[in-house]
């Protein structure tokens, strides 16, 4: 049984090397739905990062009494994090068997 599994793995690696598995790339990723779905996902990512950034800024300001400076800083940080989230959304990421990085 273990030999079978090893064979499957090697076969898959060989097929991936030869570019015979076009389905390999999308496997395990998020389902690529309609354009509306993709747009909605990106929007959610940006909005949630902004919510977290603004909330963090306001809480830290309340605590340290530095209103509105940390709020402004974390607003920008939240926006950058939102863009980063969207970038991560569209960079292809394969399953657990990826080896890069």
């Amino acid at each position: 049984m273990a030999e079978d599994n090893g064979f499957e793995k090697r076969l898959k690696q060989a097929r991936a090397r030869q570019g015979l598995d076009p389905a390999q790339k999308t496997r395990g990723g998020l389902p690529s739905g309609s354009t509306w779905g993709v747009g909605f996902r990106a929007g959610v990512e940006v909005v949630s990062a902004l919510i977290v950034g603004v909330a963090l800024g306001v809480i830290l300001d309340r605590w340290l009494g530095t209103w509105p400076w940390l709020f402004l800083v974390f607003f920008v940080v939240g926006s950058v994090a939102g863009v980063l989230n969207v970038y991560r959304l569209f960079t292809p990421r394969s399953g657990a068997d990826r080896t890069r990085r």
Binding site: V47, S48, A49, I51, V52, G53, G78, L84
Partner: peptide, 17 residues
């Protein structure tokens, strides 16, 4: 800070979606 906010935004985006 950007990475921390990005990490903290995970549960928010998961629930809002």
């Amino acid at each position: 800070p950007v990475e921390v906010v990005s990490y903290l935004s995970r549960p928010v985006s998961l629930s809002i979606r």
